Simulated assay, not measured.
Amino acid sequence: MRALPAIALFLAVAAPTSFLDAQMPTTPPGSPNPAAVVAGTYTADPNHTLVTWSVDHMGLSTYTGIFGDVSGTLTLDPRNLAATTVDITIPVSKVTTANAGLTAHLTRPAANGGHPDFFGPDMAPAHFVSTRVVVAGRRATVSGNLTLNGVTRPVTLAAQFHGAGRTPPQMGGKDNVGFNATATIRRSEFGLGFGVPLVSDEVRLDIAAAFQK
């Protein structure tokens, strides 16, 4: 009889997990088939959209950081992909790296009334707006203007369709579409040349973009 309370406690804890497991889909809802894309205006999913940046560190290694909490919209129609538009905002002051000291330096305020070495704590978010999209199969060239540190310059993304599909009701029941993209910029062109050339001027951007509606 003394075992009954322990059994009851086990069931109370295990039951919710078992219930959730039973409700989870057994196959991924997304498909790499472009025919799965639904036309419309999508909102960037901040939980699954990341901009990873990489720089060369003193010719000795590659260092990487991440921008998250991305917002914005994607409007597309599979029947008229050339009319696709992208408008994305990236809060660069929320940058994350694997090193607390480097993250602090990237977001450190300016000293003696000057300019921060990098982003500082209050830099306005970066903003990318597409101007032209050229699609070739599952790939696309997305041209647009990137505004960073108060400077606007043209940037071209090499994008690739990743997948599309509707999540099950218990996971939101929304249409989703995802892409991967790469681009290269020179940070000095945006007034962020601190440390060049010990830390490369060239910055590679690897983007995992998820949108839902």
Rank of each mutant, 00 (worst) to 15 (best):
T131G: 15
P116H: 07
L148Y: 09
G172E: 09
P109W: 02
V155W: 06
F161E: 04
N99W: 07
S143H: 13
N112H: 08
A110K: 01
F128Q: 07
F118E: 07
A158D: 14
T152E: 07
T152M: 11
I90H: 00
Q170W: 00
N99M: 08
G144R: 03
T103G: 15
A126W: 10
S93I: 00
T97R: 01
I90Y: 02
T156G: 02
A100H: 02
V95T: 09
R166C: 07
F118I: 03
H105R: 01
R108C: 05
T103E: 15
G113N: 12
G137I: 03
A159M: 07
P168N: 08
S143I: 01
H162K: 09
T141Q: 12
V92S: 14
T103A: 15
R132M: 11
T97C: 14
L106N: 01
A126Q: 00
A136N: 14
A100Q: 02
S143T: 06
V151F: 10
T103N: 05
N145C: 12
D122I: 06
V151Q: 10
A159L: 07
F119Y: 09
H127D: 04
F119C: 04
L102S: 06
T147I: 05
V95W: 06
V151Y: 04
P91F: 05
T103M: 03
G114H: 03
Q170F: 08
A98L: 12
A159R: 03
P154Q: 03
V92A: 10
A98R: 03
V129M: 01
T97M: 06
P125M: 02
V134R: 00
T152C: 11
V142G: 10
H105I: 13
K94M: 12
A104Q: 06
P91V: 08
H127P: 03
L148M: 14
P169I: 11
M171T: 03
A111S: 03
V92M: 05
A140C: 13
F161T: 08
A124K: 11
L102P: 08
T167A: 13
K94L: 11
A98I: 00
T97P: 08
V129G: 06
V151H: 13
M171R: 07
A158V: 08
R132T: 14
R153D: 13
F161V: 12
A98H: 01
G172D: 09
G137D: 05
V134M: 05
P121Q: 00
T156R: 00
G120Y: 12
R138I: 13
V95G: 11
P109T: 01
H115N: 08
T167D: 04
V151L: 05
F119P: 04
